[in-house]
Amino acid sequence: MYNPFSLQGKTILITGASSGIGRATAIECSKMGATLIITGRNKERLQETFMQLEGEGHQQITGDLTTEEAIKEIAAFCPALQGVLFCAGIGDYTVTKFITSEKLLNVLHVNLISPVLLTRYLLTNKKIQKGASLVYISSTGATHLAPGLGIYGASKGGLNSMVKAFAIELASRNIRANAIMPSMVKTELLGTLDTISAEDWEKDEAKYPLGYGKPSDIAYAAIYLFSDASKWITGTELQMDGGRNLQ
């Protein structure tokens, strides 16, 4: 069957696959024919994702991406890759007056340092094949701020800059690097942001002409970026916000 978006024959590593967007993308990619290497911290939740993957040959490995040892281990564990989704991340709502170096470093570590170091070790271990596609889950929080979003925004803004650098450095080997910038997507992450009241969530969702996103919405964009159909696209930031930032 004619399908320029097929992931048949591609092996894809996904971080943050034990929950939310990473989990949905792993499952959808497996349905498109990809072989998955999935990683996360929580063994049980990672196993839940693993059980939902279609097809054969998938593998899983747990690890905390804030430790360089785990990053090196995951990079060494991987076979040759045609795609990577850097999805592990945490939310944060610290207002400036209460920023501590500990809070700052924690968010930067998970959201910025870990994807950068994982990219580095995958490259030096020669795991990223010619023509591969690297996809980084950033956020509209990089460009559209709100009270308390400074640290999170800085982590994702920093990631956007790194993605452009990767795109430039890797283009000679036809390796592409792109960022996806979602606004609010209904995942477990929202539950951790309990400084926001239920009523405020509802008011916020009303500002989205198409409502909040679903994890699968992001998964389909990732599938496009992993497929050969997007082979001319690199260094971009795909904003996905259901129309939230149009006006």
Partner: peptide, 27 residues
């Protein structure tokens, strides 16, 4: 008073009293 002050009160309670209160509690 603003949504920013609400976040600030929540952070103050966390720092001074080591207690987590939520947006719903303020509301």
């Amino acid at each position: 008073w603003s949504s920013l002050t609400a976040l600030t009160i929540i952070a103050m309670v966390d720092e001074e009293y080591n207690v987590k209160i939520k947006g719903d509690d303020i509301r």
